[in-house]
Amino acid sequence: MQTASPGNRPYLLLLPAAILLIVFMAIPYLNILVTSFRNPGQGTPYADGYTLMNYARIFSSPLYQGQLFNTLWIGIVTTFATLVIGLPVAFQLGRADLRWRGLAYGIVLSPLLVGIVIRSYGWTILLGNNGVINRTLINLGLTEYPLPLMYNSLGIIIALVHVFLPFMILPIMSAVQSIDPAVVSAARSLGAGRATVIRRILLPLAMPGIQAGCILVFVLSLSAYVTPAMIGGLRVKTMAVTVVDALLDTFQWPLGAALALMLSAIGAVIVMIFARATRMKWKVG
């Protein structure tokens, strides 16, 4: 459907958004790009002159490569886990005959109402060696020693899944809600049972939401700082944590910029590959 164009210069309406985007996105990114090629400084953020050394350091350092790989791994596993947990929830919440829709919305959104620091702190209380989960398991006699749930990737993933679940559920839910119930009726009258309807009709039609949710959670996981910092501690560092260290602690802005760009670039490539693989021909062109 075509919406009426305001006057004969509709692109003028894009101007404010374009200016905002340039000022707050393009310029900072350019700045980071330039910084990543600067010489490291002594006691200053950076020194005069330009170099490829920062990138060379990353490519020759197993530590940084390991962190990069681990960050991507955490992102992928978190995305997959939120999808597995969120999909059935979203399908239930998206049903046309859902009662208490307001309440359901509230429950899904409620984690977002509590600040991310508080939520992450909550997880440290649950996951620690003396935490609620381990105490319970030990008291029940299910384990003798506390399970390693904190200061590792598993703990980070558990907390991230909780934090980002709404970002998976909401887009899928809205995609499911927009499916015409008559389409489901049509499939059933053509001989499809409930399972077939889910597999052949609902899942493909919810794909735009699934795609959006996965990209959202993946990107958020890659750039997450607070949760990995609090739960990973000094033991496990994701790229975002290392970047912040480089910027604030060790005062190596060029290296931090290069690391940040590497992460963004690899993340963008993965998102592009994913979007391409899940492209929906019936939607585009």
Partner: peptide
């Protein structure tokens, strides 16, 4: 419904948007 062997045409057509015309016809 899936056991009644009925052909149904809906007011808003209710075609499967993610399938081609051939795909829609093939489904049943």
């Amino acid at each position: 419904p899936e056991g009644r062997d009925i052909g149904m045409v809906f007011q808003n057509y209710a075609l499967f948007p993610h399938m081609t015309v051939r795909g829609n016809l093939a489904f049943g």
